[in-house]
Simulated assay, not measured.
Amino acid sequence: MPSPMFVSTSSENPQRLTIDFKDDPQGSLGAQLINCDKGEPYEMFSPGFAQIGRLLEGDTVAQKAGVQVGDIIVAVNGSGFRRFAPDYDESKVTNISKNGNGSKENGNSCANDNAVMHMGQGEAYSALLTKIKTVKSGGDPPLVLSLERYTWDARVNSWPRFLEAREGDVPAAMKLLQDHEAWKSKILPIDLTRDGIQEVLRLKAVAEIDVDKTGEHPPTVYVNFAKLLVADGISSDDVIKCFIIFTEMLLARSKDPRFPKTNQFIDLTGLSMSSGFRVELMRRIYEVFEPNYPETLGKMVMFPVSTMLSTTAKTLLSFVNEKTQKKFILSSSLKEVCDELGWDQTEVEQCGGVTEFMHKHESAGAALILE
């Protein structure tokens, strides 16, 4: 039976990854590093000065060790290269190193001194690269890199999004981030035993569609307005909390925690704009999503919406900021919807429509039903 409480899919506690070059002392890491020592505001919460920006293809050290985009180098052979001291609970840090790396029992552990670097702009990054080259040229002991991996909503990854949402205004972005953290501590965990939430999940009135395995198109949070209109015992608060649950789950699947994305699909099948378009619910969802998940929306698609009614819908959605409105797609064309969201139109049609297509691919919601 699933837990009766839904907790956040992100935290400030990192995972730790140790890479030992003993099997290939002169080997290349096989990754492109990002210099996080340029004195830019977005670097503020990065614990280190070098981040994995891209993995090179092939049988590289990074690929073998399980390195991922977004990982941050914090030490070289035990010497710390940190912007600030660790501010997490050490007991909650998970070692994800492969083949025993980082394990004291295996003999590959290289205790880090967690040293904080106080240097001029660019000097810490340069010193880190120099340290790596010096150790590699010596050969013995072999190079050991210590990295930390943070989830999508940890400050190191969320701060640049909040900063972008406030167009680089640091005080405004900081307030937005602090308000978000206060909101999240209040709203989560979510009690799944609430009757209204369970009804939304059973009806699949809020669900997911995640079919793109290439990573080109983000997964989609699906909302069926027709089911919400006829359901009894479901409040707007229940719908919003289910929306939060699916948003959290789908953002956690992002391959790059620095740029988590979801799409949103509003299913208006069988409804008219006058009877089925719940503007107040849309407003409340927006008021939750915009300040708490900034820069995570790929596209928001409403379907089916005729060309004539599209203008009316845009007027009703005038409370949405201009930047977000540019991500809206109101369409009556299934082909356009499938092209935008990365769905196979033939499969959607063979299923009998978008709703049936969702039922075929939705699985996460079923795991939340308490029976």
Rank of each mutant, 00 (worst) to 15 (best):
E295I: 02
E295Y: 01
T296E: 00
T296P: 01
T296G: 05
L297H: 02
L297C: 06
L297A: 08
G298Y: 09
G298V: 04
G298K: 03
G298H: 02
K299Q: 15
M300N: 11
V301L: 15
V301R: 00
V301K: 03
V301M: 09
M302A: 15
M302C: 06
M302P: 03
M302V: 10
F303G: 06
F303W: 07
P304W: 08
P304L: 11
P304K: 14
P304N: 14
P304Y: 15
V305A: 13
V305E: 03
S306G: 13
T307H: 03
T307S: 11
T307W: 05
T307P: 10
M308R: 05
M308T: 09
M308S: 13
L309E: 06
L309T: 13
L309P: 10
L309C: 14
S310N: 06
S310Y: 00
T312P: 14
T312H: 10
T312Y: 09
A313V: 06
A313K: 07
A313Q: 05
K314P: 01
K314D: 06
T315R: 02
T315I: 06
L316Y: 06
L317G: 09
L317P: 11
L317T: 11
L317S: 14
S318F: 08
S318V: 13
F319E: 15
F319C: 15
V320G: 01
V320P: 08
N321D: 15
N321T: 07
N321C: 06
N321M: 04
N321P: 04
E322H: 10
E322Q: 07
E322G: 04
K323A: 00
K323T: 03
T324N: 01
T324V: 13
Q325F: 02
Q325G: 03
Q325R: 11
Q325I: 02
K326L: 00
K326R: 03
K327F: 07
K327M: 03
K327H: 11
K327N: 05
K327S: 08
F328Y: 08
F328Q: 09
F328W: 11
I329C: 00
I329H: 02
L330M: 12
L330K: 02
L330H: 04
